[in-house]
Amino acid sequence: MLHKIKLENILFLDIETVPQQANYDALDETSQKLWEAKTAYQRKEDYSPEAFYERAGIWAEFGKIVCISVGFFNFKGEQRSFRVTSFYGEEAQLLKEFKNILSSYFYRPQHLLCAHNGKEFDFPYIARRMLIHGISLPYKLDLFGKKPWEVPHLDTLELWKFGDYKHYTSLKLLTHVLGIPSPKDDIDGSQVGEVYYKENNLDRIVTYCEKDVIAIAQVVLRLRQEELLTKEEIRSV
Rank of each mutant, 00 (worst) to 15 (best):
K4T: 13
K6Y: 07
K6S: 05
L7T: 05
I10T: 00
L13W: 06
E16F: 00
V18W: 10
V18P: 00
P19W: 11
Q20C: 09
Q20L: 11
A22T: 14
D25Y: 10
A26F: 11
S31Y: 11
Q32Y: 07
A37K: 15
A37L: 13
Y41I: 14
Y41S: 09
R43L: 03
Y47T: 06
S48I: 07
P49F: 09
P49V: 04
E50L: 11
A51R: 08
A51C: 07
A51E: 11
A51N: 12
F52M: 07
E54Y: 08
R55W: 03
A56R: 01
A56T: 03
I58V: 05
E61Y: 08
K64D: 06
I65Y: 12
V66Q: 01
I68Q: 05
V70P: 01
F72T: 06
F72A: 03
F75A: 04
F75Y: 15
F75K: 05
G77S: 08
E78K: 15
R83W: 02
R83D: 07
V84G: 12
S86I: 03
F87R: 02
Y88Q: 03
Y88E: 02
G89Q: 05
E91W: 07
E91H: 01
N100P: 06
I101K: 08
L102G: 01
S103M: 09
Y105G: 04
F106T: 04
F106D: 08
Y107I: 08
P109M: 10
L113R: 03
L113M: 12
A115D: 06
A115F: 13
H116D: 05
N117T: 10
D122S: 00
D122G: 04
F123D: 04
A127P: 04
R128W: 11
I132T: 12
H133R: 01
H133P: 06
G134P: 02
I135M: 09
L137M: 05
L137F: 02
L137N: 04
K140S: 02
K140Y: 01
L141F: 12
D142N: 14
L143V: 15
F144E: 15
K146M: 05
K146G: 03
K147C: 12
K147N: 13
W149M: 14
W149P: 06
E150L: 05
V151Y: 01
P152G: 04
H153S: 09
H153Q: 13
L159H: 05
L159A: 13
W160Y: 15
K161V: 04
D164H: 10
Y165E: 14
Y165L: 11
T169E: 13
L171K: 07
H176S: 14
V177F: 10
L178C: 05
L178K: 11
I180T: 07
S182Y: 00
P183S: 11
D185V: 13
G189C: 08
G189A: 02
S190N: 06
S190H: 00
Q191Y: 00
V192F: 00
Y197A: 00
E199W: 11
R204T: 10
I205H: 03
T207M: 08
Y208K: 01
E210F: 05
A215V: 03
A217R: 10
Q218Y: 05
L221C: 10
R222N: 12
L223C: 04
T230G: 13
E232P: 09
R235H: 15
V237Y: 13
V237F: 14
